[in-house]
Each structure stands twice: as C-alpha cells, then as structure tokens.
C-alpha cells in the first residue's frame, strides 16, 4: 500500500531528474531528425551551386544561383535523363501496383467468401511462400525473359506482381472482419453474378486496405534496382534508379553540381508523395506489422 501511494505521488510531481531525462530524450530525437534531413538538404542546396563553388566549400546551407546551369549540363551531356526515367518508372510502378492490388484482393476474396476443398491448404501455401527471396533467383527469371524475347520491355517487371503472397495475406486479414458474407448473399438474391459482386460490392469496401497496400507496392516498385537493371539495358527504357547509376559513371564525375541536381530530380517525386501521404504511410507501416 505504501509503495503504491509513493508511486502515485511520484508521477504527479516530477523531480528535476525527470526534466533532465526528458531534455536528454528530446536532444536525441532532434539529433536523429537532423541526421535524417541534413544529407537531403545538402543534396538540394548543392544542386543549385556550381562546381567551383562546391570545390571551394562543399557544404552550404543556403542555395546559390546555378540551378539552370546544372540543369543544362544534365540535359545536354551524358545519358542521364530524369524525364525518361520518371516516365518509365511511372508506367512500371503504376502497372505493377494496379495488378498487385486487384489480384491480391481477388485471391483474398476467394479465400474469405467461398467454401472450397483446397482453401485451407491454399492459404497455408500462401503463408509459406510469403518469404521467398525473389532477388536471389534473378538468373533463372532473366534467362526465361531473355528466351521469350521480353528483355527491354516492361512486362517482366509488371506481370509478376499478380502473385503477391504477402498482400493476399494482408487483404485476407483485413477482409475477414470488415466484409460480411450476408452482403454477398443478398447480391445473389438480387441476381448479381459472382464476378460482378466482387467488382461492384467487395472492391469499394476494401478501398482503405487497397490504398495502404498500393502506396507500399508503388514505392517498392519505384525504388527497385536489381531486376530492372538486369532486364532494361537500352537507354530509352531505363527506370529512375537505373538513371541514378548513370550519375556514377558518365561525365558527371567532374560536374559536382549536376550530380546533386540529378539526385534531387530522382528523389523529388518521392518527397512529394511522402509529404502528402506521410500520415497514411506511417499508419500503414504500423498496421502491416500487426496484421502480418
């Protein structure tokens, strides 16, 4: 009893020790925040500075006036092309995301709504293949794509996302409590076909889960380097991350300002997406881990 009483008192009147501790925690957090932001800040600022300026002082917190000059260097020399990279990445990521979200929901629907013999086995199977390390079997995938002549096309990067086991798992977990089977039954009574019911009734209900999963699939498809780098070797089909690798090789080696500007261009779309959707993204990370 006595112990309990002191405890109650303790967290009503904070001692100096408490405030020192809070100050320490805040300091750690601020330092980590600076560490997260400063590399990108230097990148953006240096993108506006000329190579001689960077050579004199590589760090400046304020932008300079050479943005257009750097832009010219990027556009006129070398093989880096932010616009082409952006376009290609957008096509691939959008396609992959749409397929992954649609077919994962469809597969989850098959598991949740229907009673079929192999259902349980199928779900166990999906859990088992969730962890397959895809990148490791790139050699076989590449050879397959090469044989059918689909290298330097976007299909091998879009179509495989029809089978996204982790997303099926997430969708199934989300659908079970959120989706009542009575809706399906009343749709049947109204004469709706099964496929129609899925498209017109189930999909709208699943929208929040689909949005969360779409963000992550889009970003991970956008950021993927290994497989696109192997499949897409011609200049006009390269994605944004492959464009980044150009910055390491070409004439940019001596054009410091333009490297930073090129990097800024590759990162800018992600910054915009992140600052618009950060709330949902953070919530999505938390949700995914609890459900998964």
């Amino acid at each position: 009893m006595a112990k309990e009483a002191t405890n109650v008192v303790k967290h009503r009147n904070h001692g100096t020790g408490y405030y020192v501790f809070i100050a320490f925690v805040m300091l750690v957090c601020i330092l980590l925040a600076v560490l997260s932001i400063i590399p990108f800040w230097i990148m953006i600022v240096n993108g506006t500075r000329s190579t001689p300026e960077i050579q004199a002082h590589a760090v400046s917190l304020l932008p300079s006036t050479h943005l257009m000059d750097n832009f010219k260097i990027i556009n006129e020399k070398g093989s880096f092309n932010a616009f082409v990279g952006f376009r290609n990445s957008l096509i691939i990521s959008t396609g992959a995301t749409a397929l992954a979200v649609y077919f994962s929901t469809l597969t989850a629907y098959a598991i949740v709504v229907y009673q079929w013999k192999l259902k349980r086995a199928f779900f166990t199977f999906i859990m088992a293949v969730m962890m397959i390390p895809a990148q490791v079997v790139t050699i076989g995938f590449y050879q397959m794509v090469y044989k059918v002549g689909l290298t330097n096309t976007f299909w091998p990067l879009i179509l495989p996302s029809i089978a996204a086991p982790a997303m099926v798992f997430f969708m199934k977990q989300y659908m079970e409590p959120a989706f009542s089977l009575e809706i399906v039954q009343s749709a049947r009574i109204d004469g709706a076909g099964e496929f129609y019911t899925f498209n017109k009734i189930a999909l709208p209900i699943m929208k929040p889960a689909m949005a969360t999963q779409a963000i992550f699939t889009f970003v991970s498809s956008w950021n993927n380097l290994f497989l696109p780098n192997v499949i897409l070797t011609k200049g006009n089909v390269k994605t944004m991350p492959i464009m980044v690798t150009m910055l390491k090789t070409d004439i940019y080696k001596v054009e410091y300002g333009s490297i930073y500007l090129g990097l800024t261009l590759t990162v800018l779309p992600l910054f915009i997406v992140y600052f618009l959707l950060s709330k949902y993204i953070i919530a999505g990370v938390a949700l995914g881990s609890v459900k998964g």
């Binding site: 469809l106 098959a110 790139t138």
Partner: peptide, 26 residues
C-alpha cells in the same frame, strides 16, 4: 459456389508458378 473459389485463385496461382516457382527451378 465452390468453383468460384478456384476460379478466382487461378490468376494468382498461374502468376506464381510462372514468375516465382519456375525461375527457382530454372
């Protein structure tokens, strides 16, 4: 309605076999 369970799973299974399982064995 059991057959729809199978029908709706077909795209996933086909894509999985073709793009994930086959490359492993290949």
């Amino acid at each position: 309605y059991a057959k729809y369970g199978y029908i709706f799973s077909i795209p996933f299974v086909v894509a999985f076999l073709l793009f994930q399982l086959y490359p492993i064995f290949y």
